[in-house]
């Protein structure tokens, strides 16, 4: 039983023209995020996680562009909005935090001004109101003595505090969706856990839809309700955290889980690596993009790209192992 999703991404396709041909970085990505739901998105570097986030917010760096699909928020397709209307969506409806909190804050403007600027841009609040609200926001993200912190510059703060400030800026206009692109990768392990807890709490308390992008499946397990596994610009598996971690269906998900180091493993046990290389997006293999590396490869895999099929409600996998019905005769 699920309500209509808060954000629905349908068949998103993003391409980068290059001298060697067009690189399709997103190859028909579909996903949904519900209110109060934390969705973890995992995959190797270059699989399209960050591009999915940037395509949703329409900040794909040129010359890349979104060539097909829909991003539906409240029944409105964001891809059809004018740039001016889209600026009103960013921050106010969908906000984002980034991997390097130090680099994501303007180095020459104080923390307080950066927060109040965002508040004043969207709500035309008075200077005093904006300041009061900025203090509240800093308190909410767990920064001690927030009033004293307003005049600090980003480089005077620790990495964890910088990320908290970035979260405060993202929350300034009470967005419905928060996209967190590897928000803990650059932080110490203990700080990572604190930031994860903070994001989890905000998701539940505020009913946010959280899209949490990471290559760390351990972090996803701590924070997310659902996992989306991406490979070569496609969603290859989508399901609840428990289902995906306990009974991974896609051979790539299985390989990814086996490649994850765990605390329990002995030194003698070798970490399993995934053979082969991530495919060249400008010149992808025919058929399923994972088939050259897949241990369970079948003849048909090199012919046709498997669709993302629903195995059961809330569980989707893109693999011919499970979808014989739609195999067309070749």
């Amino acid at each position: 039983m699920r309500d209509a999703p808060l954000l629905a991404v349908e068949n998103l396709r993003t391409e980068f023209p290059s001298p060697r041909g067009v690189a399709t970085v997103l190859h028909g990505v579909s996903l949904t995020i519900g209110r109060g739901e934390a969705v973890g998105m995992v995959g190797e570097s270059g699989c399209g996680k960050t591009m999915t986030a940037r395509s949703i917010l329409r900040i794909v760096p040129p010359p890349g562009r979104v060539t097909a699909g829909r991003v539906v928020l409240d029944g409105r397709d964001l891809l059809a909005l004018s740039e001016g209307e889209m600026a009103g969506v960013r921050g106010r409806r969908i906000a984002m935090i980034f991997q390097e909190p130090g680099a994501a804050l303007n180095p020459v403007i104080s923390v307080g001004e950066q927060i109040t600027d965002v508040l004043r841009a969207h709500h035309a609040a008075s200077r005093g109101d904006a300041r009061t609200r900025a203090i509240e926001l800093l308190r909410e993200v767990g920064i001690p003595d927030p009033a004293a912190r307003l005049s600090a510059f980003p480089h005077q703060l620790s990495g964890g505090t910088q990320q908290r400030v970035a979260i405060a800026i993202a929350l300034a206009c009470a967005p419905d969706v928060l996209i967190a692109d590897e928000p803990t990768t650059a932080l110490d392990v203990t700080i990572q856990a604190q930031i994860l807890q903070l994001l989890r709490r905000l998701t539940v308390d505020k009913g946010l839809g959280l899209l949490f992008i990471t290559h760390n499946i351990g972090a996803v397990a701590q924070i997310a309700d659902r996992i989306i596994v991406m490979y070569a610009g496609r969603v290859v598996e989508d399901g609840s955290v428990d289902a995906v971690i306990d009974t991974p269906q896609h051979p790539y998900t299985r390989a990814l889980l086996r490649a994850m180091p765990t605390m329990m493993a002995r030194r003698e046990e070798r970490l399993l690596e995934i053979e082969g290389q991530v495919p060249d997006l400008a010149n992808p293999p025919l058929g399923c993009p994972f088939h050259p590396r897949c241990p369970a490869v079948m003849a048909h895999c090199g012919v046709q790209d498997p669709p993302l099929a629903e195995m059961e409600p809330g569980r989707r996998v893109a693999c011919w192992l499970y979808d014989h019905a739609s195999v067309r005769p070749t």
């Binding site: 940037r54 917010l57 900040i59 600026a87 009103g88 969506v89 960013r90 921050g91 106010r92 969908i94 906000a95 984002m96 935090i97 980034f98 991997q99 390097e100 680099a103 994501a104 804050l105 303007n106 180095p107 020459v108 403007i109 950066q114 600027d117 965002v118 841009a121 969207h122 970035a166 800026i169 993202a170 300034a172 206009c173 996209i179």
Partner: peptide, 25 residues
Amino acid sequence: LPYVAAIRTAGASTAYIMFRTILPN
């Protein structure tokens, strides 16, 4: 730089980014 992308995702206008983000830097 990342902080320009970051402030764009917070809904900053082109004029804001030009004069308040890029100019001071």
